[in-house]
């Protein structure tokens, strides 16, 4: 099974179970988007047998909708709840991917989730062999899930 399929399956499961939101995956992007405008990115780093990171990028309005569904309340600005929710989504997605990579939890360590937001920012990461960026459509709008992965020898 490809990484894109793992990303799609994990994302659909997390959104349907925890957010009661239906999302559908689109064909993976052929070129990585590294610049984001008026957006929020939640991300988790990976280290150990594999190194890399998993990130979820959403325009601010979509991130607010996602957070609203997550918490069951109205969200009208990119506040701490939005950043925390996007980080936690990245954490759950990374946990799912980690389970596909190794049965031994200590083989791969996940960082504490973090989030960035702003009118315009870019995330530099050297694309690795396991680089994937999968778009998703939801009722709230489009967002991206990105996986950068490199097996350590």
């Amino acid at each position: 099974m490809s990484w894109e399929t793992h990303i799609a399956d994990a994302t659909v499961e997390i959104f349907s179970t925890m957010l009661m939101m239906e999302v559908s995956s689109q064909p993976p992007l052929t070129e990585r988007i590294k610049s984001h405008q008026d957006s929020v990115t939640g991300m988790v780093g990976m280290a150990g047998l594999y190194k890399g990171m998993l990130a979820i990028h959403a325009p601010s309005q979509v991130a607010m909708t996602i957070t609203g569904n997550f918490l069951g309340l109205e969200v009208d600005s990119v506040n701490d709840d939005v950043k925390d929710a996007m980080g936690e989504l990245a954490n759950m997605l990374a946990g799912s991917i980690k389970a596909k990579l190794s049965d031994n939890s200590k083989d791969i360590q996940l960082s504490i989730p973090s989030a960035v937001c702003g009118d315009s920012y870019s995330l530099d990461y050297q694309p690795q062999q396991g680089s994937s960026m999968v778009p998703f459509e939801s009722a709230g709008g489009r967002f991206l899930v990105e996986l950068q992965l490199e097996q350590q020898t």
Partner: peptide, 27 residues
């Protein structure tokens, strides 16, 4: 309640007294 679903880490938690585990995402 964790994203860490590896059998080894859950076994370690159990050996330290954890009575169960729930994997995120959960219902």
């Amino acid at each position: 309640i964790t994203t860490e679903a590896g059998a080894d880490i859950l076994a370690e938690a159990k050996s330290l007294g954890a009575k169960g585990s729930i994997k995120k995402p959960f219902t």
